[in-house]
Amino acid sequence: MVNIIWGIFIIVGSIYAIVMGKAEVLNNTILESAKDSLEMLFKIFPVMALWLGIMNIASVSGLLKKISDKLSKVLRVLFPDIPKGHESLSLIASNIVINMFGLGSAATPFGLKAMEKLQELNHKKDTASRSMITFLVINTSGVTIVPTTVISLRMMYGSLNPTEILLASLLATAISTTVGIIIDRWLARRYG
């Protein structure tokens, strides 16, 4: 999927630029993209390090586990197919908690492990189970309390108040997740 999209971007963009007589712009764009990507990385790097540090304190002190345990209880309602005390539930909870802090890539290892455990419960190994779909719908609707990267970018571009968007972002993500769960329930009932 990404292959096709990336290819289309480059091919369509290049052809349009050349046809419109903007070969020079195209030339500069190709060369400067490399420099831009490094600049962008430098913007994300320090904030990412900061949050990974804070998150590690939460992880070592057991706070993360405590929150996941609490969350597991709520999650049981959403995942009726998972047997009580099954490991997948706490992995799902950890994944969601880390995602809440806007650290998507740090959450991925927990998420993949959770999928592995859900696959053990799955009867048809090539077909997504109901629990898997519910998990991924919650995951992709992006339950984020602190969009770490967004705030760091706003800070770098000199926002007078980088975190002013937090409340709007929190509400939007809550609505997105709620709608996702409702649609998931509805489709699950429809397709069994």
């Binding site: 997504a128 898997m132 609707s141 992006g142 709620t178 996702g180 429809r190």
Partner: peptide
């Protein structure tokens, strides 16, 4: 995620996921 455990039939997951995106 589905790729990592070898799931090929993803059923209605894409629709539910995209609906959440639109709502967001």
């Amino acid at each position: 995620y589905f790729g990592s455990v070898g799931i090929k039939k993803i059923r209605y997951s894409l629709w539910a996921g995209l609906a959440a995106d639109v709502a967001g």
